[in-house]
């Protein structure tokens, strides 16, 4: 082998490896700096109290309102996504099992939907809200985020259902099951890991998304007790507090960022563990 080939062989392997390993570096760097900054500022008060008087000038209190608001919105949106996404995914895999082309076209459209940015959902949610005569509220936030996460929910669940062998459907039909029974008793069970992963993924997106709730959920210092009350969210709490010139307020933004990061990490790691565990029990 001549020298030039030998050198390019080594050089390009090194470059490729470097690019890949730099991703680990980036992840550790991001999480590291957020944790360092965040944990320095974080106190129990912050995650257990709502803002008190003068909070936005560095006064007492915490951002419990935002944590709860985010959880409410993510839960509500995920619930709607389950109600729409599950039947849709099952439909693709049971009723359309013989129509490969239609299946592929639908998947292709769903993938394209995944690309729509959340600010567009936000703007549309806002339009919808005005149309229905609502104000910025928990409900409006939930609906908007639901629009955003439903395609994700559907496609993720579908991805796992797709791997279930076709013989299983036929066996079920042969035993006299209706399509509904096949869908919910056989496929749903077999694809349960996908279902859980899809829920967690939607939930994670719901907690973390800012642009879609910016117009629709409003912001308040109180914990919402009703669907038509506005709700604060964690990403927006971070965003607004970082805009403040007062150092104490900015510190609290970092603390909130650390809390959000922990939530997201817990969700994605759980999703991974669960999908791995259930994958073992699936007939392949």
């Amino acid at each position: 082998m001549n020298k030039r080939k030998q050198i390019s062989e080594i050089v390009f392997k090194l470059i490729s490896g470097f690019c890949a390993y730099s991703l680990i570096g980036i992840l550790l760097f991001i999480i590291g700096i957020i944790f360092v900054k965040g944990f320095n500022a974080l106190s129990f008060e912050m995650i257990s109290q709502t803002p008190k008087g003068g909070y936005y000038f560095g006064g007492e209190g915490g951002f419990l309102n935002a944590i709860v608001g985010s959880l409410y919105i993510a839960l509500g949106a995920t619930f709607i996504a389950i109600m729409i996404g599950t039947p849709a995914a099952l439909f693709i895999n049971v009723h359309l099992v013989r129509y490969k082309r239609t299946q592929n076209t639908i998947r292709y459209l769903l993938d394209s939907l995944w690309g729509i940015p959340s600010i567009v959902y936000g703007a549309f949610g806002f339009t919808l809200m005005l149309l229905m005569g609502m104000n910025a509220s928990l409900l409006a936030g939930i609906i908007t985020v639901a629009l955003l996460v439903t395609p994700i929910m559907t496609r993720t669940f579908d991805e796992v259902l797709q791997t279930i062998p076709k013989g299983l459907h036929e066996a079920s039909f042969a035993l006299g099951s209706t399509k509904t029974e096949t869908a919910f008793k056989i496929l749903f069970k077999q694809g349960f890991s996908g279902f859980v992963t899809a829920i967690l993924l939607s939930f994670g997106r719901g907690i973390g998304d800012a642009a879609s709730v910016l117009f629709t959920a409003g912001y308040t210092d109180l914990i919402p007790t009703n669907l038509d009350e506005p709700a604060a969210t964690l990403p927006l709490a971070i965003f607004f507090q970082l805009g403040s010139p007062i150092p104490e307020v900015r510190e609290r933004a970092f603390a909130a960022a650390a809390v959000l990061t922990i939530l997201i990490l817990i969700i994605s790691i759980t999703a991974r563990i669960i999908s791995k565990r259930y994958l073992k029990t699936i007939i392949k």
């Binding site: 997106r205 973390g208 990061t261 997201i264 994605s268």
Partner: peptide
């Protein structure tokens, strides 16, 4: 999966 606000921070 990291939220975009975290990237912003």
């Amino acid at each position: 999966g990291l939220p975009s606000v975290i990237y912003g921070v």
